[in-house]
Simulated assay, not measured.
Amino acid sequence: MFLFLIASMMVSLVIGAVSIPLQTFIDAWLNFDKSNQLHQVLMNVRLPRILGAAIVGTSLAISGALMQGITQNPLADSGLLGINAGAGLGLAVMFAFFPDTSYRFILVACFMGAAISVGVIYLITSSNKQVMTSLRLTLAGAGISALFIAASQAIALQFNLSQDITFWSIGGISAISWSQLRLITPFFLLALLLAIINSPAITILRFGDDTAISLGKKPQRTRIVASIIVLVLSGLSVAVVGSISFVGLIVPHVLRYFVGENYRYLIPLSGLGGALLVVWADLIARSVNPPFETPFGIITALIGIPFFLYLSRKGGLRL
């Protein structure tokens, strides 16, 4: 799968509104020429865009796998549960009140918005020592998502930000730069490492809290750590491309047919699968009607909505 991802990224590099020979990319990589327009397009536009797409796809797919693991809910996804909407609200607040702020603070605002969403969902779905159920989590996430999206739209209308918020809400990756990648990559790598380290504990959760405790694990701590990883990955994804749903829903389910419920394999493979999905969605989005672009959030939604309905009919909302 890793080799297929590399091949897909190479295809995405040379195909677009203007097709560029692979040899040109090799020349640009080995002997970059600032005066060569094709070299500029490859190294400063397409390459960071493709790397950003891979990071976002990996982040969203791992977030979905983690959410499904800690809640035992096959419909869990950072987009469906309102975490992306919370990060989007943080983004809207920054656009409205701090329009000239740096990307660093936009990223922090997205993290804070995602954290607020996670905290509110936990408060709603947990009472006393009762652990959240799948149905309560899904309903709470839907309500929080609707509330935060409405708040973002209200801010957009009040401050005349409709065009900016719309771009982010439907997803767009065309403007990503090397400076943004340098900022988000450390957060991404740290969250990815923590997800892999905690994957055995996530696997044990499917057997119940009592079993996990008997094996020396701490279920609640596992859920808290996983939730922090999810809010970091979701926050950086929204900061890069806006609110994209369904990637975290689709990819882990497909890969479960091959690796089952062992999260030591499911998490890294979900990362690769999510990167593949978003890289190809981005390629399709900019190839449908060149030189204009279709936001790739629409592409993932067209794939994800039928998949969501299929899971619902198969009994996805389990108590």
Rank of each mutant, 00 (worst) to 15 (best):
L5E: 09
L5Q: 10
S19R: 14
L22F: 15
Q23C: 01
F25N: 13
A28Q: 08
L47A: 14
G52N: 11
T58P: 03
L60F: 08
L66S: 06
I70W: 07
P74Y: 06
G79N: 10
L80N: 05
L80F: 03
L80P: 04
T101L: 05
F105V: 11
F105N: 08
V108F: 14
A109S: 04
M112W: 04
I116D: 03
V118L: 10
V120S: 10
S126Y: 03
N128H: 14
T133N: 12
S134A: 15
L139T: 07
G141Y: 06
I144G: 12
A151S: 13
Q153H: 09
N160C: 04
Q163V: 13
D164Q: 15
W168A: 11
S169M: 14
G172K: 09
S177V: 02
L189P: 06
L190C: 13
A191Y: 02
L194T: 13
A195M: 07
I196L: 13
I196N: 07
I197H: 04
I197N: 07
I204A: 09
G208W: 08
D209W: 02
I213P: 00
L215E: 00
Q220H: 09
V225A: 03
I228C: 03
L231D: 01
S234K: 03
G235N: 03
G235K: 04
L236K: 00
A239G: 01
I244G: 03
I250V: 11
H253E: 05
F258H: 00
R264M: 09
S270N: 04
G271W: 00
A275Y: 01
A275R: 03
T300H: 05
L309G: 06
Y310P: 02
Y310A: 07
G315M: 09
L319K: 15
